[in-house]
Amino acid sequence: MSLSGELIAFLGLALVAILGGVLLITLTKVVHMVIALVFTFLSIAGIYMLLSAEFVAVVQILIYSGAITIVMLFGIMLTKHQEREEPSKGRWGKFSLLLAVAGFAVAVYLGIYNLHIPVQPTTLHEENTKQIGIELFSKYVIPFEVMSVLLLVALVGAIVLAKKDDKDEEGDQL
């Protein structure tokens, strides 16, 4: 297998993504962890590019690297957190969890290893956004609308939950 440009790009992006994940685990400062994960999200966007999904890649950058990361940073800033993340589990807990994750990974990898699907030519890269738009507004229009309702519910719910409940606090004092 010769080193094609695609492969080099994949390897680089995958390396950054995994590195970001590993940093998430190993770093001690909470803010650093979030920043490390931004790299992962960005490189995943690159992976989407490789998979000829330009629209999804852009959405990934916008929502994950942009919105969610910012929201998370706000969450960190609004709460008084310990600067340094102390390890919570005992050594045995971590070790057994690591073992379990490794076992899980091996088991799934065996599945992936045995998976052989012939590559077929696709036209996904041609007018990718248009294709998604057509699908979304013809075949998946009902899920799309349901999704918008879901977002509205999440919006209202988040506001209600996070709102400082003045009445309750007065009630507590009584």
Partner: peptide, 19 residues
């Protein structure tokens, strides 16, 4: 795309619960 939307909603609600 749907999954990303749900993830965003989940992050928002999760943070609200956190607050």
């Amino acid at each position: 795309l749907f999954t990303i939307t749900i993830a965003a909603a989940e992050a928002a609600v999760g943070l609200a619960i956190l607050m």
